[in-house]
Design a protein around this nucleic acid. Structure first.
Lengths: 232, 232
DNA sequence: TAGCCTAGTTTTGTATACAATTCATCCTGA
DNA sequence: TCAGGATGAATTGTATACAAAACTAGGCTA
């Protein structure tokens, strides 16, 4: 598959090529992207004026978008004090992983049984995209490729509830992952573990997928905690 | 404990006695309550005028509240066509239970290890409230008591991520539970199963809690599916 | 009579104006 | 010097006005 075709398929899966969206949805997506990409840092205060300039939307639109993102846990609202980007402490991370562990493992298991052959192939392609962006050292691309991988995983497990629950959680930890991946040792380890997961998924081996998922999550959790204790 | 004191503690747990809330939060709560109580039926179209009358809020406020509830999955928005109450088909219910099963079971297990003695006592009180409202045949009170029970469970497991994930899901199936509980045979069965769960939680018996949770969920799932196939 | 078109009404989408609150700054007085 | 408060700017909370799209009903035509 050529690079171009691959990107096209990735965009299709991630829903990046839809054009017709309301102003509110556009604004929402813009703000979300700014947070996930690390342009806004955790705990940062966001004023409506600043966001209005960023998105080009008026305050009515903006405030709807903000209410939406608040409900998703990406923003924190304090009455009369506006919005700040949600911040994660060690405790929140612990809780998130406690939730992810059974849910993501279930998703991997279900994928091995329910995914179409096309999706299995796509998981493989997504993993290769992760590996190649790793080689290139392109962090931005790596995030997108990872999003693609998990998006296919959640689609293939045929359960939108799992998808929704985990997507929310993923949004909130994604900028942490950017920090984390600066640790190149950890990055290499993560790649190996994801490779094991990808292999198990492609082989439709439920038990192996389960084990790989558990291993990967536990190792990611420990690395995050370690990273966090270092930065504090 | 007197009835009065019991209600007081329940209100405290459910956060019903906070007074200072922004108009938006009030409107949000009012609409949410109207949906959960079955006043708005699944699939029903909600016009902004109607909601404005119900909540007394202006459209700005309303639309923020609606965006929030949409993000939580309680409402569906179609561009230029407004909001409708989210509808659940058999497939969605299946997916929800697939997610609930591992998460709620984990919550019960964690509760046995982490809950304070006060919370253990409160779980007991909540279960008694469920049982007594069952005897009285008071559906409204039964829903509140169940909310109380699960609220204590989620608090006691010391994981707000689990709480958030499940609260969303609970909101969306709560009006189904109202329908379901009209089946008095099922209602009796559910009470027995919840009693087993409550006992295990009070005894802090992790394995028993796990088993009771799994049993209860599986049985509730089957009942819901059966009920749903009947009503269609 | 059935189907389609159209005018009018309703509803949603968007922008803006005003009020209330918070925040920053600088001034005063001990 | 500095604690405290007055003042004005900035920001959020709330309401309303106007534009655009969708729905409705009634009449017209085949």
């Amino acid at each position: 598959m050529t690079e171009h075709l691959l990107n096209h398929r990735m965009d299709a899966t991630l829903g990046l090529d839809t054009v017709e969206r309301s102003l509110r949805e556009q604004a929402q997506a813009t703000i979300r992207e700014a947070i996930l990409s690390g342009r806004f840092t955790a705990g940062e205060k966001l004023t409506e004026r600043q966001l209005s300039e960023l998105t080009g939307a008026s305050r009515s639109i903006l405030r709807e978008a903000l209410a939406h993102l608040e409900a998703r846990g990406l923003l924190i609202r304090q009455t009369h004090r506006g919005y700040t980007v949600a911040k994660l402490d060690a405790r929140s991370i612990h809780e998130i992983f406690e939730l992810r562990q059974p849910v993501e493992t279930l998703a991997a298991e279900l994928f091995t049984e329910r995914a179409s052959d096309r999706e299995v192939a796509e998981i493989n392609a997504a993993f290769e995209a992760i590996a190649s962006s790793f080689q290139a050292g392109d962090l931005r691309k790596m995030r997108t490729a990872k999003e693609w991988f998990f998006s296919v995983l959640f689609t293939g497990c045929r359960n939108t509830e799992i998808r929704k629950a985990l997507e929310n959680v993923f949004d909130r930890i994604s900028y942490l992952r950017i920090q984390l991946l600066n640790d190149s040792e950890r990055r290499k380890q993560a790649l190996i573990e994801m490779g094991q997961l990808a292999n198990a998924l492609v082989a439709r081996d439920r038990d192996a997928a389960r084990n790989a998922s558990i291993t990967h999550l536990e190792s990611a959790r420990q690395a995050l905690i370690k990273q966090l204790s270092k930065s504090d």
